[in-house]
């Protein structure tokens, strides 16, 4: 134990660590309530998304592959030369390994899983942490969206969907992927890669096969496809928000615990140092008295 530390210095450190613990605990609570809201949003977005999925699955099953390419450009599969990656990270830090894991997954995807050379990627950064990282390491970024809200609306993702759709239809890119943090539960989130374009129609259920369509099945499918892209992006963003807040909540809970452990440890050190000081003082007085006594004798 370093002797140089005085009890007063230790006391000051204890106080400052207690303050830190108070802040991290407050951040934990804020993150917990934001996480609950985000989870609720995921749930309330579900009915719409499921219905759109089902209708697309059934309608796509009614169209032939030739028609697909001619009349539904969003379904068109073509040889992939250029790829767009939408990387969803958080704006703020203090969320544990969340953004590190996301970026690692993105790098792995672009360098190992896709055969295209790196210069054939266009990255759209959603979230400041991902944007900063891409800029710092010189990755090919074509657009950035930061400061999206903690309770995003569908409106907020429309410009992102717009870029993906336009670039895909114009043939600038041949596929679009979204990389986001999938929310499993409070303790577990996992980076996922989702293919946004071309749209892979979901399994057909055959539920709407004998409906009347106005104006026509093709027109309905045509209108559904852009909605499907929005729904998928929106869902990915909501999951990302829920993941961010739960990661931050857990990180802050650990930080609070660590701070309190440190306070305990320092309190012990403080008591020892105080006792040592008292002992020293007593022995100094005793020694002084002794010295005086021996002079008198």
């Amino acid at each position: 134990m370093p002797q140089a530390v005085t009890p007063r210095e230790i006391r000051r450190r204890i106080r400052s660590i207690r303050n830190t613990a108070q802040i991290t605990r407050a951040m934990e609570m804020v993150a917990a309530s934001k996480m609950r809201r985000a989870q609720q949003q995921v749930v309330s977005a579900r009915p719409y998304a499921e219905r759109i999925r089902l209708m697309i699955g059934d309608l796509a099953a009614m169209t032939s592959p030739a028609e697909e390419i001619r009349t539904f450009p969003l379904l068109a599969k073509r040889p992939i030369r250029r790829v767009q990656v939408i990387l969803i990270t958080s704006d703020r830090g203090l969320a544990g390994a969340l953004n590190t894991n996301l970026i690692r997954r993105a790098v792995e995807f672009m360098t190992h899983e896709r055969p295209e050379p790196l210069e054939n990627f266009d990255i759209v950064a959603v979230g400041r942490k991902g944007r900063d990282w891409l800029v710092r390491y010189g990755w090919p970024m074509v657009a950035e969206f930061t400061r999206l809200s903690d309770n995003p609306t569908i409106e907020a993702i429309r410009p992102i969907a717009e870029i993906a759709t336009t670039d895909f239809i114009n043939g600038k890119v041949d596929a679009v992927f979204v990389i986001y943090m999938h929310f499993i539960n409070t303790l577990r989130q996992e980076p996922r890669v989702l293919q946004l374009l071309p749209i892979e129609p979901p399994e057909e259920v055959g539920e709407i096969a004998d409906y009347i369509f106005e104006p026509s099945p093709a027109a309905v499918l045509q209108a559904l496809l852009p909605r499907f892209i929005e729904v998928q992006l929106y869902r990915a963003l909501l999951e990302a928000v829920a993941s961010e807040h739960s990661a931050r909540m857990v990180a802050m809970r650990n930080a609070t615990q660590n701070a309190l452990d440190l306070v305990d440890e320092l309190t012990l050190t403080y008591n020892k140092a105080r006792q040592a000081q008292i002992t020293r003082e007593v022995s100094e007085i005793a020694a002084g008295a002794n010295a005086l006594g021996s002079v008198q004798a």
């Binding site: 209708m55 709407i208 004998d210 409906y211 009347i212 369509f213 106005e214 104006p215 027109a219 309905v220 209108a223």
Partner: peptide, 19 residues
């Protein structure tokens, strides 16, 4: 407000999907 004009729907309507 259907894309092709107003749609009035009463019970036992035929299955329909419209813009």
């Amino acid at each position: 407000p259907g894309a092709e004009g107003a749609l009035g729907i009463l019970p036992r309507h035929a299955p329909l999907i419209s813009l």
